[in-house]
Design a protein around this nucleic acid. Sequence first.
DNA 1: ATCCCGAGGG
DNA 2: CCCTCTGGAT
Length: 219
Amino acid sequence: MARESLASKRERAATIEERMYAHYGPGEASLDYRTPFELTVAVVLSAQCTDAAVNKATPALFAAYPTPQTLAQADPADVAGLIRSLGFFRSKAKNLVALAQTVMADFGGEVPADVDLLQKLPGVGRKTANCVMCEAFKDPQGIAVDTHVFRIAHRLKLAGPSADTPQKVEDILLKVYPRDQWGYINHQWVHFGREFCRARSPRCADCIVGDLCPTRGRW
DNA sequence: ATCCCGAGGG
DNA sequence: CCCTCTGGAT
């Protein structure tokens, strides 16, 4: 079987993206998070818990602490009380207060629109920084390739067997997908990976992109 | 039981 | 490289 051309791969990826978008939407950016600060907080909170849980907790959180200034002065225990239904709430609360303090002390009260500076914020690593760049600043800097993205890229054969490291997978995906869709990958694939393309016992039979998947049913 | 939109720390 | 932090969904 001949290797699929980049053009063909791009075409297939575009159809896959249409399905994913229809199913999962564009991500946090579609919600009421008006400022980079709010969106950054929401993305930090999203780790290890559902979007629904985050969306339920954030209104009270932002009512109490609408700005980096106010959050910087908060007691982490009070913040923890507002996000108790989320996972890792104590460490998240501590990180969020420290994050606000860092924003005030080092970045003039504004969340920085820079993928490296963002990672100076407590609780913000590569993945979160990527999401914030995509969703808050509409300036995607890449695709964070975690185990889910890695697995899905290989199953969909968007990245071939020679793409044996996360960096290689990312390089390929950045060529396959247009830049303005990079942010969607981070958001949508995680949900897709949980609902259909699970590590074990994936739901190939009713998968929303099963007809576009070269390895359908092989897992 | 097992997994999840990770990141920090030893 | 390993561990820890956490509730919720399935």
